[in-house]
């Protein structure tokens, strides 16, 4: 079974009218902008899938649609065999989301209090929550910071806390929006190792992540999709992508530039 199955997905956003437009063109309909244009994609269970693209390519919108936070305009999407329009609650119980935003926690609370609160929202009871928080804080090396307030922690710790929260419910799929962006190089290495060895190889979780950094994707992802202006321009393993352009030794950055520029932008 595919962990994620996207079929002909499109998402249009209606832009908000400015005061000027409201006064001078009150009856003119605002132009919709196409954030995602007719994409189809399958992600296998236990796979590390990377989505790369420039800012505004539609990557975060796609992750939010898959996490049931944004509704699609068109298309059919199944996550863990459940339809996102019909089984939102079921899907939310089986996924974890690591956002790119540092916000999303309570700054006056300690890391432990934050984790307990979200554990309850993920239906984890007292003793179970306690065990899970202990386990995750050790794995992510934040156990020494658990009684510090969120506002007193560095960006790296906050990022790890976000990952810990996403793993509270033991999800089958983890959506990660730039998970390594606030981390130093050794932490990135440790975290990649943790994701690959423990989450994927041991626990068979599916990882769907977004990145701007080609280097961190190259040696980490099983498959890569290149997204540009709301479209998937290429998708496959690094070797598939190289073979498609008949240049077997080029870097992912070169592939990206070729794919984006040759297909018109």
């Amino acid at each position: 079974m595919d962990a994620i199955n996207i079929f002909e997905l499109s998402k249009e956003f209606i832009s908000i009218k400015s005061i000027y437009q409201l006064v001078l063109q009150p009856f003119q309909k605002p132009k919709p902008s196409l954030a995602i244009n007719n994409i189809s994609l399958q992600v296998k269970q236990g796979e590390i899938f990377a989505l790369i693209g420039q800012n505004g390519a539609g990557k975060t919108t796609l992750i939010k649609i898959l996490s049931c936070l944004i509704l699609p305009t068109k298309g059919k999407i199944d996550v863990m065999g459940c339809n996102i329009l019909k089984d939102g609650e079921k899907i939310k119980a089986s996924i974890g989301l690591v956002g790119s935003d540092e916000r999303s926690f309570y700054w006056r609370l300690t890391l432990r209090q934050n984790l307990y609160f979200f554990a309850a929202l993920y239906n984890l009871s007292g003793e179970k929550a306690k065990r899970k928080i202990k386990e995750l804080s050790c794995l992510l090396e934040i156990n020494n910071y658990l009684d510090k307030r969120f506002q007193e922690c560095s960006s790296g710790i906050k990022q790890r806390l976000s990952i810990a929260r996403s793993l509270l419910s033991d999800p089958g799929i983890l959506f990660m929006d730039e998970p390594f962006k606030s981390l130093d190089l050794p932490s990135v290495k440790n975290l990649k190792n943790f994701i690959k060895k423990i989450l994927v190889e041991e626990q068979h979780k599916t990882i769907f992540f977004i990145s701007h950094n080609f280097n961190e994707v190259e040696d980490f992802a099983d498959r890569i999709a290149i997204m540009h202006k709301g479209e998937i321009r290429a998708c496959g393993t690094l070797n598939d992508l190289r073979n498609n352009i008949s240049l077997p030794l080029v870097s992912l950055e070169d592939i990206y530039n070729l794919v984006v520029n040759t297909k018109g932008s």
Binding site: L69, R103, S104, F105, W107, F118, L121, Y122, S169
Partner: peptide
């Protein structure tokens, strides 16, 4: 909304 926690809550299986 300002804290960003609303989206985090809505991402959990909570009605």
């Amino acid at each position: 909304q300002l804290l960003g926690t609303l989206e985090a809550m809505l991402a959990t299986p909570t009605k």
